[in-house]
Design a protein around this nucleic acid. Structure first.
Lengths: 202, 202
DNA sequence: TTTCTGACTTTTTTAGTTACAAAGTCAAAA
DNA sequence: TTTTGACTTTGTAACTAAAAAAGTCAGAAA
């Protein structure tokens, strides 16, 4: 019989070590041997807990993503208006993207569009869209926003925000931008959000 | 002394031949020899009129761009409202992008960001932004839109529209999308424009 | 029985290398 | 002034070999 407690603990230690390496250097530049060395164990041990590097990478992304959504939800709950909620959301995403850009989210997405990894991303995006839709619905109920197709508007909002990032960066599907670039994207996103919310009012 | 009339005429014939090849196949897949053969002249002749392939490519893009701006201006003048003008603009751009996607605008832009080619693109984008700004100003003067920084809003609008295209296409900085993709981009652009304009109203 | 590892094999990346195609040049002809 | 055939140079795609990293497994350790 297996001891799930110890097993999960070791899994977590591996994920933690990988997260450190991945965020500091980058996922592709990190080898399984380096992670093993950090943990003072053998590479083969890593493969006892994860079938392959891709799965480990995904687990790392999921852990980071979980923290992101928790934070996002917290801010959304605290906000007093849809306007405020969306603005807070931009801040949270900005911090997250800046912190975890070395995790090569876009890069991974680009390759593994089809398999389970791609599916995980799709789910994450849907989850974020659902959160935005909820914020919009809240605004509608409170009379802050005009009645509208909240899901459609949430998708449009998401696409627009993502789009700004691509439109502003010459090397579009690169994960990490310079600090200056991140800031510029943020500014434009705030401006667009402002207009967007106005457009949903009345 | 040189005969500028004949000289320009030959330049035009070359541009025309290149345009045909470029739009049908693509700029990179077209060789100078092919263009020369189409014109029943030698490759060396081409180099008498254009210093290199890049310059010819730029001339072709400029010719296409000129047609684009002419059409754009025509539609803008005809429109009765800022709303209508921006909607018409989307149609014109849609048709243009679809027709000339083989000209490898993005691809070229990506490489030659710094040199004279990049400068030409920057100018073209500014020109388009100025056109949008003029439309917005018209709307403000007519009382259709609230007072605002028209230039800034025009830039934001441009970035958002471009962004949607990138956000929607998995292979972001690729020039030619499938017909279906083009149509999807168009639909989201129309929706965003709708919200955007509402957001600019009082 | 579960966890771990050294030694191993397989796969992927990278850094050359070559061979060909296309870009670009030029002296001389029209 | 314009054109060209014959030329050189440059860029690219297709192989290759070597290295590095991924991934496996029989058996040891706990």
């Amino acid at each position: 019989m297996q001891d799930n407690h110890n097993r999960d603990e070791m899994r977590d230690r591996i994920i933690e070590a990988a997260l450190k390496r991945f965020t500091h250097y980058s996922a592709t530049k990190t080898t399984m041997n380096e992670i093993a060395d950090d943990l003072h164990c053998s590479k083969a041990s890593l493969y006892y807990y994860f079938p392959d590097k891709g799965t480990l990478h995904l687990a790392v992304l999921e852990k980071a993503g979980e923290a992101y959504f928790t934070e996002l939800q917290k801010e959304a709950d605290r906000a007093s208006s849809a306007h405020q909620a969306l603005m807070d959301m931009i801040s949270v995403r900005h911090a997250f993207v800046k912190k975890f850009c070395r995790l090569e989210l876009f890069k991974t997405l680009k390759d593994k569009q089809l398999d389970s990894t791609g599916e995980a991303f799709r789910q994450a995006r849907e989850r974020e869209t659902a959160l935005i839709a909820a914020i919009i619905r809240g605004g509608v109920e409170r009379g802050e926003l005009a009645n509208c197709d909240a899901d459609r508007m949430a998708s449009l909002y998401m696409l627009s925000m993502m789009g700004l990032r691509f439109a502003l960066s010459d090397r579009a599907f690169t994960d990490d931008l310079s600090d200056g670039e991140f800031e510029v994207v943020r500014e434009w996103q705030v401006q667009l959000a402002e207009i967007f919310i106005k457009g949903l009012k009345k």
